[in-house]
Write a protein that binds this DNA or RNA. Structure first.
Lengths: 229, 229
DNA sequence: TTTCGTTTTAAAATAATCATTGAATACTAA
DNA sequence: TTAGTATTCAATGATTATTTTAAAACGAAA
């Protein structure tokens, strides 16, 4: 029971029940804690509510392409995501890796290899992530835990607000153009809707600035975009 | 425009000359710089003398097992090492990954996939990627981040001010004629409106010079144009 | 010194962009 | 379904940037 506390949590997003079962048995017998989702919506919600140490993501989900799920996760989640797929096409593999997948395994996979790749991914992620939480004066931001504190008090952010904040934090000190931000948060095709951005920046300021009228962290660069410091 | 200086270096350790050739052509045509070794001893020496951004390591080397090379490298080298091998046995894969390989590909591999895995590994490894800003005495200018500091403090520049500063910085030390600057910033057809230029140079001086009346960086070349030092 | 072309400085008018608000719509969880 | 929340959208005034105008200062040459 004591051991349960230390178990690393892995989220499985896959619609095939047999695969989920196999994975769960394999992982649990190797001391991981397993949570599961059988479609994209459920998977994204689970990941957001309780971010796991690693995600195993199937590409062929019923409600949404795994590629899209991957992209969406990567707007804020930076722990390993390993893709599992029956697809062995090069295009798919390249797409997934370029979208931020940590690894790509084709089904059927060998469980020993999967476990080794899981270990490897987690280890490498540990090495490169010794920087949480981030602190900016009165703000304390933990992207992995998806939590934000202002003067020690938790602040509730909506999905979009958090994505936006993540983007800012990841590019601290740099000016991000409206175009870029809109593309990253709202996707291609919304690059002219500066108004959305203004509304959400206003909301972040209201929640996170001590004096929203005279912002300290969310600096507007008129005619260009915004910068976070 | 890709500069040779920026090319990432990849070390290939493989005894098969055909593979080396194929890899070299593939990698070089994708803007990597390639160095090669045909056995373990040579590979270790090369890696030590001139640490590359990534290592492609064959498991079946003539003088030493690739597994041992991997272990040895990992005692000090913490950039990505991707294993290439004709061996597709699970034991080998697990061993390599547990010894710190970033990835494992079996020969024959698909070049597109290899390139994607290289990109992915390098991206994940990059955590401390500080791009150095340009420094001119008390000014610190980062064109990429679009940020300017004077004596360590952020200075806000408008669009036009920044464009003008960029132009100056890109041609540091050279005299730029009014005509040229006007064409670059305001476009063709505004080449007679010297007044715009005067106003904006004045603004840059006010914001960036310690003593705007006696400018240090923005030098006027009367009758010709301006020069930035 | 005076003159002339140029540059600096200041301040206005104009144009563009931004913040704020609230209502309409979409979404989510009970 | 309904209540509650999140997002989109449009209208408004406020702010900021750019252009334009004008006057003062400068420096070289007569």
């Amino acid at each position: 029971m004591k051991l349960t506390m230390n178990r690393l949590e892995i989220l499985i997003i896959d619609d095939e029940i047999q695969i989920r079962k196999l994975l769960r048995i394999t992982l649990e017998s190797n001391d991981y804690k397993v949570i599961q989702a059988e479609n994209a919506r459920e998977g994204l919600a689970l990941a957001a509510n309780h971010p796991p140490e690693l995600i195993l993501l199937d590409i062929g989900l019923p409600d949404k392409s795994g590629h899209d799920v991957l992209k969406e996760l990567r707007t804020w989640y930076n722990k390993p995501i390993i893709i599992l797929s029956v697809q062995n096409s090069e295009v798919d593999i390249i797409k997934a890796l370029d979208n931020g997948a940590s690894d790509y395994l084709t089904k059927p996979f060998r469980t020993g290899e999967l476990l080794a790749r899981i270990r490897s991914s987690i280890k490498r992620n540990k090495q490169s992530n010794h920087e949480t939480p981030l602190i900016f004066d009165d703000l304390e931001i933990d992207l992995q835990a998806r939590s934000v504190k202002k003067n020690g008090k938790f602040i509730k952010l909506t999905m979009t607000e958090f994505k936006l904040l993540s983007l800012f934090v990841k590019h601290e000190g740099r000016v991000l153009t409206h175009q870029y931000i809109l593309k990253e948060i709202w996707g291609i095709g919304h690059q002219t809707e500066n108004q959305y951005l203004r509304v959400f920046v206003a909301q972040l300021r209201k929640k996170l600035e001590n004096n929203p009228n005279n912002p300290n962290h969310f600096i507007t660069e008129s005619g260009i975009g915004y910068r976070f410091c």
